[in-house]
Design a protein around this nucleic acid. Sequence first.
DNA 1: TTTGATTGATTGTTTATGAATGTTTTTGAT
DNA 2: ATCAAAAACATTCATAAACAATCAATCAAA
Lengths: 249, 249
Amino acid sequence: MLTPERQQLIIKTVKNDHTAKIKQLVEVTGASESTIRRDLDQLEEQGLLRRVHGGASIRNPASEELSMGEKITKYHKEKQAIAKFAASLVKDGDCIFIDAGSTTYEMIPFLKGKNIMVVTNGLSHLDALNENKVMTYVLGGLVKHQTGAVVGPGAIKNLQQYRFDQCFIGANGVTVEDGFTTPDPEEAAIKQTTLNLSRKRYILVDHSKFNEVAFLRFSDLSEAEIITNYQGKSMDDYLKKTNIKVVTT
Amino acid sequence: MLTPERQQLIIKTVKNDHTAKIKQLVEVTGASESTIRRDLDQLEEQGLLRRVHGGASIRNPASEELSMGEKITKYHKEKQAIAKFAASLVKDGDCIFIDAGSTTYEMIPFLKGKNIMVVTNGLSHLDALNENKVMTYVLGGLVKHQTGAVVGPGAIKNLQQYRFDQCFIGANGVTVEDGFTTPDPEEAAIKQTTLNLSRKRYILVDHSKFNEVAFLRFSDLSEAEIITNYQGKSMDDYLKKTNIKVVTT
DNA sequence: TTTGATTGATTGTTTATGAATGTTTTTGAT
DNA sequence: ATCAAAAACATTCATAAACAATCAATCAAA
């Protein structure tokens, strides 16, 4: 048996049971104990599993589930800077919508103590909003467990009862031609509806979303202002269509 | 059995019962008392549980980061038994309402895998519903941060779009004269409205709520059936007014 | 044939475990 | 409140299992 094949088998076995003894792996692969140990060393080096006395286990057995607030997100520093500026636009007395998503989530600590009303479809936002003593309305509707967002026709209908001074929306792609795009149809519908109900409209996107296109378009560039840390090319083209606030980390 | 597997099992057991004796853990894992003690030391070190004389418990509610599901609740065993029976009444295809509260929360693990639709106003229920792969609608409205419940006129209006095969409601007080009572006006309104929208109506209350009266009455005894572990006096008087299922721990 | 890499066996070392020890804490009776 | 018994505890120690390190054998490529 070849080395890569054997290591694949090891990974598969460990993943399957969440844990595997050396003896099991010897039996499964037909290799010797020494070889298995060497494989485990390598696989741990690559971060694919965790060695424990007696065998191996998957990497994160102890810290089972982290809420989204605790998850490590890409470009966290950048998102925080974007969110901080966005939050600075919110004035006492405002009624605002905060979209589900990791960038908008970062706004919440910066809203602390403000006398505002927040509506959100992001379930993972609720704890943070609570901690920061912000008056919160949660959107009703189907819970999309994967992302912790509230979606569906019921949510749209519920949403239409509100009017917002400002809304803060995330996006997965931004281009000059296609505007703002996102992969999920139901979330796209929420974003679209929200934009229609808001006086001031902000899209929060980090640099990695620029010049990318996702499956569904939910708005033209001109419909909302952008808050980002992007400073790359085509900036002039973007600026012809809408206002952009560029923040630096 | 490998260390991580054993420790996972310990965590799972402790989480499930909110508390576990060393002897139980010895039995469950098949390890010796010494090993269990060492594991508990480590797990406490990692902040995953709390050691107490005689065993371990989940961490105190003092650290705010725990969801309600993990908080220590009084009469947990009893509530679990009540909830288990309640969940057994739910059949595939049902649309049900689950009220916010610690007793109703305990139903969720017993709903695992059922092909049902759940509507809830309990935000702390959402994670558990997610984990157990139950299709969930969250009620929209004002988030009452103290209890993690959705309330308010908007919530009532949102609620009225639904019709339920069954509803499972909590209460803080039950008496023959005053029926079901609860301290919070807004939550009372939710309970009342829900009862009106449901075909089968169940109130889940542990023994400590019997012959107690809270501030607001939200229903007469005859309006709903009771699931409880109460076996005290006046049972005949209660039975004249409604059906009571008594469960034993 | 030589070189380098991989393997499996052997070595002494380290680690996890469970039993045994005496100590502390809890409990219940006075 | 006080004391004695029981339960739970921390600590120690011996042992068996798992370990890292080493080395010779094997195999493939140069």
